[in-house]
């Protein structure tokens, strides 16, 4: 066991030494991997930030029930209690037609709608907030309430929120696909880097095999190289995303005033970083293993 650990420690330090002896090549490889990984990582952060804006609206869709003009007060109250007791409803707000008109005038800047057309054209209404995650139930309530006596029209305001949800889901799928493609790319980059290294060290490998080196002994430094290079690439991608988010935060906060003081954008979490590092290390390791297995066979002296 001690010998095994010593051999691994030796291979690890040997790998770091080799990386240090060819800094330009090593840095270029890490840069390529870092930039490639920064793309899905950056998109992941973007989606995380978008998702923090969307859920309040998308998870709590609103249903607006417009009442018939001649609805009596007891009937209105009856409707209100019926709505308040519904399983999909979290809050019911009555909006009298006068208030609705004032809100419309304020929102549109048209101060005298009533004077222009001689009457208030808006009906009384209930604005019903659905419970979080009960969008389907609220849709059923829309169909149901539309048939209730006293309800003129039922309008569900969750369509846009559903579209945002769908867009976020599609975005996540896209990022996963992109990450998948780039992970394959990372494996290919590692495979090729190791292939070149094996060609450069062909003589050393042949001599080592002649004097008793096992394939595991020869393979080990290359595996470490693949893994270290990939982890360094993942760290670089994290750094790039951090810098980008930092720059964006400054712009949104100072330039566009879209962020309140103390408010900040979401960043890659420690879990994201560790996960990306582990996946990169694994892919780098596998890419290196495949490359060594493929090319070592050709260097067998027997």
């Amino acid at each position: 066991m001690r010998t095994w650990l010593r051999e691994h420690a030796l291979a690890f330090s040997d790998t770091l030494g080799r990386m240090g002896r060819s800094p330009v090549g090593t840095l270029l490889s890490i840069l390529v991997i870092g930039i490639a990984l920064a793309l899905p990582a950056g998109l992941h952060v973007l989606l995380k930030n978008l998702a923090t804006l969307a859920p309040e609206r998308s998870a709590e869709p609103e249903l607006t029930l417009y009442l018939q003009a001649d609805l009596a007060e007891p009937d209105r109250k009856g409707l209100e209690s019926r709505l308040a007791g519904h399983v999909a409803v979290s809050k019911v707000r009555f909006v009298p037609r006068d208030v609705a008109l004032k809100e419309l005038e304020k929102a549109t800047g048209m101060a005298s709608i009533q004077e222009e057309i001689g009457r208030n054209p808006l009906p009384d209404a209930f604005v019903v907030a659905g419970r979080r995650g009960a969008a389907d139930a609220l849709e059923k309530l829309q169909a149901e309430a539309g048939r209730w006596p006293g309800i003129e029209h039922a309008q569900l305001d969750s369509a846009w929120a559903r579209q945002v949800d769908s867009a976020l889901r599609a975005g996540r799928v896209f990022i996963l696909m992109l990450a998948g493609v780039l992970v394959v790319g990372l494996g290919a980059v590692t495979f090729n880097t190791i292939r070149l290294q094996i060609l450069n060290r062909r003589e050393e490998i042949e001599v080592s095999k002649l004097i008793g080196a096992t394939n595991a002994f020869i393979r080990r430094p290359f595996l470490y190289f693949g893994a270290i290079q990939a982890v360094a690439g993942a760290l670089l991608s994290w750094l790039l995303v951090e810098l980008a988010v930092g720059a964006l935060e400054t712009q949104l906060g100072q330039g566009a005033s879209l962020l309140s003081p103390g408010e900040s954008l979401m960043r890659l979490s420690l879990l994201d970083l560790v996960g990306a590092g582990l996946i990169a290390a694994l892919v780098g390791w596998i890419g290196a293993w495949l490359s060594v297995a493929f090319h070592l066979r050709r260097l067998d002296p027997t």
Partner: peptide, 25 residues
């Protein structure tokens, strides 16, 4: 087995006609 050959070779000391030294070491 191919995997056993390296262990067999460790019993030998091999002197090659062309030395087979690593020039960068």
């Amino acid at each position: 087995r191919p995997a056993a050959i390296p262990y067999l070779r460790r019993n030998f000391g091999l002197v090659f006609q062309d030395h087979k030294l690593l020039l960068d070491r």
